[in-house]
């Protein structure tokens, strides 16, 4: 993961536009300085440490922003609390399905990529065998093998991307749950 990606993830909790400002600033900073990820780590410090500094600075200076952010974690009222408990069968199910969905997407993608490779191997072998008896039939199978291997090559970056995205989504979902849980615990 690049330095900027790390920083971006560590900035969660700041208002969106401030996150964008920071990333934009440091994207240009690294480009202007011709700094690699390693050099950035040395010059700016570990991304997590830099993010903490930026957050601390932001909270310290912006009284208004802090109160609006604090408002988001206001405890639930009694009515809201009862509603959350009553609807728990629904949202527990939805959360579970979301997690399963997120987890199954990359698995599915890798499954497809893998099966394409297997298909290509089998039809390649079949093609080679058939070729001696039936030239055009053999050629057909070999063609299938080439297509499958091509598709699997095209598919694997997509699968890798999905794995990375799935991690991000899981993190985001966990943060949401943590946030909600905190509100539920603090109910009046």
């Amino acid at each position: 993961m690049t330095y900027l990606n790390e920083l971006e993830q560590a900035l969660v909790g700041l208002p969106k536009n401030e996150q964008e400002n920071i990333i934009e600033y440091y994207r240009n900073y690294l480009a202007d300085g011709g700094l690699s990820d390693e050099e950035a780590r040395v010059k700016l410090g570990e991304s997590a440490v830099l993010a903490e500094k930026l957050k601390a600075d932001f909270d310290q200076e912006d009284g208004d922003e802090v109160t609006t952010r604090a408002k988001q974690t206001q405890p639930l009222t009694r009515g809201q609390f009862i509603l959350v408990i009553l609807t728990s069968p629904i949202w527990l199910l939805v959360t579970l399905i979301s997690f399963l969905g997120i987890a199954s997407l990359p698995l599915l993608a890798w499954g497809i990529a893998l099966s394409l490779i297997i298909v290509s191997a089998f039809s390649g072998i079949a093609g080679a065998v058939v070729l001696t008896q039936n030239f055009w039939g053999g050629l057909f199978y070999i063609g299938m093998a080439v297509i499958s291997i091509g598709l699997s090559i095209m598919f694997s970056p997509c699968a890798t991307w999905l794995v990375m995205k799935a991690t991000d989504w899981t993190k985001a979902l966990l943060l949401k749950i943590q946030h909600t849980a905190r509100r539920v615990m603090n109910h009046e």
């Binding site: 600033y25 202007d32 500094k53």
Partner: peptide, 26 residues
């Protein structure tokens, strides 16, 4: 811009590279 500014200050004063952004923001 941010990088040039930091480098110019660093010619005289040993500030860290992460100092400038919070100041500019403020």
């Amino acid at each position: 811009y941010g990088y040039a500014l930091t480098k110019k200050i660093q010619l005289q004063l040993p500030i860290s590279d992460s100092t400038t952004y919070p100041i500019l923001r403020r």
